[in-house]
């Protein structure tokens, strides 16, 4: 009996180990393929030049238009997400602090919002755009991506705010400050590095998302100079170039994919760095 148990345990230990290491291998393999393919075609022109006339037939140029467009859209969307998200997250943790049930319901809804596919945001952004009489533009892209990433800003900032000791909050109220003063002067300060992490996460999500900007931002070979001009984005640029039958164009898609991966990696590594720093510099 004892023997059978140990055999079962051994079998499952091996089985789970194999599953775990094969996952690690698969995930490592993805990164390996992206970088190996990408770096062999990555040139300095890719990052510093706009596409020229014959670019999509293998001509000269780079994807600077897409890099700039992506940064603009993700940056603008993050700004809007901050304006909506920071007060909302603070409200949950200052005004609703005595209403545990409401707090939980709000968090529950926000978490569910996080799961809505980006193509749905894209379709919604498109409808909104038509109603407002806008055409596919930087502005429309920014608004759509802002909807997509605001729940992310709120929930990840909220996650940090909820760890702030209640005593701090009470001390501030006892000194006669109002709830919103407490929120902006005490909670915001305490959770500031958490906010940076939240912003970076949202920015990273915004820069990598393609389905939401597909309808709304349009595509162009130029760097947009105005909010009502269309803007190219890096994920879409990769997508379009990949579907080209010309090998030289596809190769540049690999390089563009490596650029996008590096940007996303830098963002998520710095988000982790700030999250670590937060836990050190906070009042307990």
């Amino acid at each position: 009996m004892r023997n059978g148990k140990t055999i079962e345990e051994k079998i499952f230990k091996i089985l789970t180990g194999v599953a775990c290491y094969s996952l690690i291998a698969i995930l490592g393999y993805i990164i390996f393929i992206i970088f190996r393919k990408g770096f062999s075609y990555l040139t300095i022109e890719m990052i510093t030049q706009l596409p020229t006339g014959g670019y999509y037939y293998g001509g000269e140029g780079g994807v600077l238009n897409a890099i700039a467009g992506s940064l603009y859209i993700a940056g603008g969307a993050t700004l809007i997400a901050l304006i909506l998200g920071v007060p909302a997250a603070l409200y949950i943790n200052s005004h609703l602090i005595r209403h545990k049930k409401t707090q939980n319901t709000v968090r529950y809804i926000l978490d569910s919002l996080w799961g809505i596919p980006s193509i749905v945001y894209g379709a919604f952004g498109f409808t909104l755009m038509i109603w407002l009489g806008m055409s596919a533009s930087l502005m429309a892209g920014i608004i759509t991506v802002a909807f997509l990433i605001t729940p992310i800003v709120i929930r990840s900032f909220d996650e940090v705010l909820s760890t702030i000791p209640k005593g701090l909050h009470e001390a501030s109220l006892a000194l006669g400050s109002t709830r919103s003063q407490t929120a902006f002067k005490v909670l915001l300060k305490q959770g500031f590095s958490g906010l940076i992490t939240a912003v970076l996460l949202a920015f990273g999500r915004g820069i990598g998302d393609a389905a939401s900007v597909l309808f709304t931002a349009g595509y162009t070979d130029l760097i947009p100079t105005n909010l009502d001009e269309p803007a190219a984005t890096l994920p879409l640029s990769i997508f379009f170039q990949l579907s080209s039958p010309i090998p030289a164009v596809r190769e540049r898609a690999y390089a563009a994919a490596a650029i996008l991966t590096i940007i996303v990696l830098i963002i998520s590594l710095s988000a982790r760095f700030f999250a670590k720093r937060y836990s050190k510099s906070n009042l307990k």
Partner: peptide
């Protein structure tokens, strides 16, 4: 080691996974 790696992989854009799909 795995925790950050999983986090980072969850943040990789879907177009990259798509490209890997086409290649592999």
């Amino acid at each position: 080691i795995m925790h950050p790696v999983i986090d980072i992989l969850a943040g990789i854009p879907s177009v990259i996974y798509g490209m890997w799909g086409i290649l592999v």
